[in-house]
Design a binder for these strands. Structure first.
Lengths: 129, 129, 129, 129
DNA sequence: GTGGTCTAGACCACG
DNA sequence: GTGGTCTAGACCACA
């Protein structure tokens, strides 16, 4: 379902948050759709349940998902309104753009990469429909 | 000379590395130019000498700077080769692009931001001439 | 487990790096085998944890080991590739050969010493099996 | 006359010692031949006079050279007798051999390198005759 | 529990 | 003066 990379320095719970938000924004996870339970997901990914728990709690406090006690966790409707989400993405993008330009990546290549991302999004959507 | 943000989670030594690499790539720091001494820079930034040392040693092991014992640290000539630097920047950029596109940032805005970065680079170069 | 010489000018962290690389190349430390924790090893060797940490981080940046945050440090698989490792060894060997020949050590003796090294390797491998 | 490498971590005064001993053992510097003065050599190499001084003093205390106050420094006769020199070279060689074998350098290659060293010695001797 | 960062302060080798 | 190593001890994030 979700894949995470144990190596690479990026905290597992952040990768989890990231992939859930991505899928929700892409519509692969639909509003009010139920997420796997903490225990099920931790078993599937081979990570500590605390790690999944931490991701879910963070997502809930950010309004991306909501929990019904005893029933599970669900994707929030109205996801696109997430306050500050766009601003945060813009900041991070600026950092990356600086590095990329200094590394000699041309603007044309950047546009090309953006197109590739959109293509990937489309195929991911269709792949799960 | 170099500014770092003591807050914000990003390790000080990584910020230092980053700003030095940036300035070297921009040509603000010229090949074979001497960097401030570990002690001087640590005093100026208000951080521990070991923190600056760590940044310098990491940069040396990456080939960005070189040290002459008893004399000081200097910017490496032949900086543009840096193997893997471009690839790493490209990967990070792709991640950021994905997030940005999902957050609703338009491609035109991305191009605009890239232009802003280039403008900033130019002004930084001229500012120190 | 690992022995280091606190005296003798050679930095402790370098000795540690050396013995770990040796053991990994000999197969005494197997791929993905977990290393002792920084704290445990520092206690065992009677050195400061930072010193062990420095060795581990250097090894990680060289691709000899990898760290999983919160879990520990492990020997990298794909160790044999180590770019430049062979070249560095060859250079250092040439230096030593020059000195040895000038000091009057005969070529037969050199071959003999190489054989001794191989014998030592074999006994070390078997000693830990 | 002598060349030293400012980079590479190896202390300059040790490189100086090394090259002088090498040339003396090869006969390029003949017994009782006068060495350049500290000031002349430091100027020629572009290094600090203290560095040359340190090398000369170390060589004198090891019996490789001798000084006549006010006249200069000279190569000692009977150089080959240097106590412990052979043993030190042997130890260092053993270290290098271990590394080389672990790095995958074959014994044939080692012999080949030894031959190369001898060839180099011969050409250096003839070059200065 | 793990690794990672940082500080404070000492000591050494080199030039 | 320079960089490099080491210790002691604190604090944090992650799992």
């Amino acid at each position: 379902m979700f894949t995470v990379n144990l190596q690479g320095g990026v905290p597992i719970y952040e990768q989890l948050k990231r992939v859930i938000v991505e899928n929700a924004l892409l519509g692969i996870l639909e509003p009010d759709e139920q997420l796997p339970s903490v225990r099920a997901l931790s078993r599937e990914l081979g990570v500590n349940p605390n790690t999944v728990q931490k991701a879910y709690q963070a997502l809930e406090s950010e309004g991306v998902i909501y929990s019904l006690s005893g029933k599970g966790s669900f994707i929030s409707p109205r996801l696109e309104l997430l306050p500050g989400f766009r601003r945060a993405a813009e900041e991070k993008l600026k950092e990356s753009l600086k590095e990329a330009l200094l590394a000699g990546i041309e603007k044309e290549r950047i546009i090309e990469m953006a197109d590739e991302c959109e293509t990937e999004f489309k195929s991911r959507k269709n792949g799960l429909k």
